[in-house]
Design a protein around this nucleic acid. Structure first.
Lengths: 337, 337
DNA sequence: CTGTTAGCGCTTTCAA
DNA sequence: TTGAAAGCGCTAACAG
């Protein structure tokens, strides 16, 4: 062995020396970029292996002006849907040979800082699953040819691609199902400070009901939770009247609402019906069995990566937006008819 | 404005030129490292601000041989406890001014690759929440002075620090509570391929029972789930006999078990009692109200970071291990007496 | 096909 | 206190 014990790190130069070639050849051998004879290539690879050579990504990135890093902006990852989405995204990111730089934000200012930090690492792309990035910063990314894609965000920044679940289709399925179940009075459950996706679902629900002849002034009851998540839904149950067909903006609110109603001695589907959104693992559990709209996380993740890669190839192409199909999963709280 | 529109990126040289100083001075101004007169410092900072200068982390890292990145190895992040832990870790990592490189692994081989990739980015530290890193690779980290800390891992690699919830204390609390509740027959629910932490909880439970005079051959029933998570617990309920005081390795199994029992028409605490581990948000919900051992995620995360920082200062110190206190949260499935 | 060379952008001795 | 200069480790254009 000629690797000294205290040796910090083996570099391309070390490999070059031992293989009797120049640094450049080593670079070519490892990146199969630039011509090199199969024989030397093999020899270099062999030596690299022996020496346990690992490319220094910082040096590489500094040169290429780009790393194999993808920045992911998330929030509230202990929320089941969000952690499932992150799960899906990480899978796709890694499948494509990237590594994820994940930052959890708590407000828009952190989002801005994060975006800056990402560019300082010369990431290959940014995925935003939470918050709304300031347009000026996004433009800086665009200028630096760093693709940005938003998931379930309002698609309104030029140069950014979006992938969203088809909220309108989802709301339509929900409305139709509740009408089919014979309901004439409806509830729409959402938090006070809803995301864009949540609001969109509510508006579409209302619109479909109206188109079906429902007097929404009289017969569509807004149930506005003063806080997010399970607890918000639980408390909102106190506001709920009798015999509603309820559509809910997300799974956590829905589970909370269901439990809140149970505490009041009412249950679905006997006393009301309930359709949630997201189809998180919890909604399937025996104690909930919530009828819910399934968001296709695999598809969302795949589309997100596809957009990043496409825009890497063609940075100036017009903003793309894909709507991902949702499907209604019939369970106990609003059974199939 | 003298920043050209198509300008790729403003560098320290740009700032230096405009401020009429050398690159070196700019570096000093921004890192307050090396002496510099307050006046020039202020001027440089001012100019940097105007030009919107951002340090190139790749160049910086290449020089310093270290980035402000911390690698985090996770798995199954859609699991509630794991996503909560990741949440806590990200919070701590960011609070200390680092960014998280998160990789989800599915087997030990991916773990090894990930560890390599982390070192290729010259991370400041590695946190392992899943899997068991090969000792040889960890040693390479140690040699390169990259601190490694394991969370809830078996503490057996020299040079690695560990932070673990106090499983023995938890199991003891559970055993005592079930005994206090008057049980003479007990169940221990775990998955077939358990983590080290899970096994440890089971062994401690058994031991405490034995010390309390329970004939564990006769009266400690092992309930071994053939799969992980909620579903595993659900199916395991079929094996469960009557009138057991059950302790369970984690929250997901416990929720599944509870639901499985309910499906069989049995409920806690009437027909059996159940104590889980983890205190995930779900265990608190109205439909579960699971008595459970709380893992202090904030503390786990803080200790993990503390170890990383300590070892950064003193890379060769002996392996440290901190046991984090757990507490029993009394809820319906095994009420306080 | 291979080697030489000139950087990528920053930090850090070492003199001045 | 400041500047010059030597890298950190790698890539890519250009000759040979």
């Amino acid at each position: 062995m000629n690797s000294l014990p205290g040796r910090q790190n083996v570099t391309a130069q070390d490999v070059a020396s031992k293989a009797g070639v120049s640094r450049a050849v080593v670079s070519r051998a490892l990146s199969n970029n630039g011509s090199i004879s199969p024989a030397t290539r093999a020899r270099v690879l062999q030596v690299a292996e022996e020496l346990g050579y690992q490319v220094n990504f910082l040096a590489q990135g500094l040169n290429r002006q780009r790393t194999h890093l993808i920045g992911v902006i998330v929030s509230h990852i202990s929320d089941p849907f969000r952690s499932s989405l992150l799960d899906g995204l990480l899978g796709e990111i890694q499948r494509h040979g990237f590594q994820a730089l994940v930052t959890e934000i708590h407000n828009e200012q952190e989002l801005a800082e994060t975006l800056r930090n990402f560019t300082q690492f010369r990431v290959s792309g940014v995925i935003v699953t939470s918050g709304k990035p300031p347009e000026s910063l996004v433009n800086q990314c665009v200028q630096q040819h760093i693709p940005v894609v938003g998931i379930n965000r309002q698609p309104d920044i030029p140069g950014v691609d979006y992938v969203c679940s088809d909220n309108v289709a989802g709301a339509t399925l929900a409305a139709e199902q509740l009408i089919r179940a014979g309901y004439h009075r409806f509830g729409w459950l959402n938090t006070q400070n809803s995301t864009w996706a949540g609001r969109m679902r509510g508006e579409a629900f209302s619109q479909v009901l109206q188109q079906s002849g429902v007097d929404i002034e009289q017969n569509l009851v807004p149930l506005i939770a003063s806080q997010e998540g399970y607890h918000g839904g639980f408390l909102a149950a106190l506001q709920a009247g009798e015999g509603l067909g309820v559509f809910c903006a997300n799974a956590q609110l829905a589970c909370g609402f269901l439990d809140g109603m149970r505490k009041l001695g009412k249950n679905a589907p006997e006393d009301f019906q309930l359709i949630g959104f997201d189809n998180t693992p919890q909604t399937e559990q025996y104690s909930y069995q919530l009828t819910t709209l399934h968001q296709d996380i695999m598809e969302l993740s795949q589309q997100a990566l596809a957009h990043l890669l496409a825009r890497t190839r063609n940075p100036t192409q017009p903003s793309q937006i894909s709507w991902v199909k949702v499907s209604l999963i019939y369970r106990r709280t609003s059974p199939s008819i």
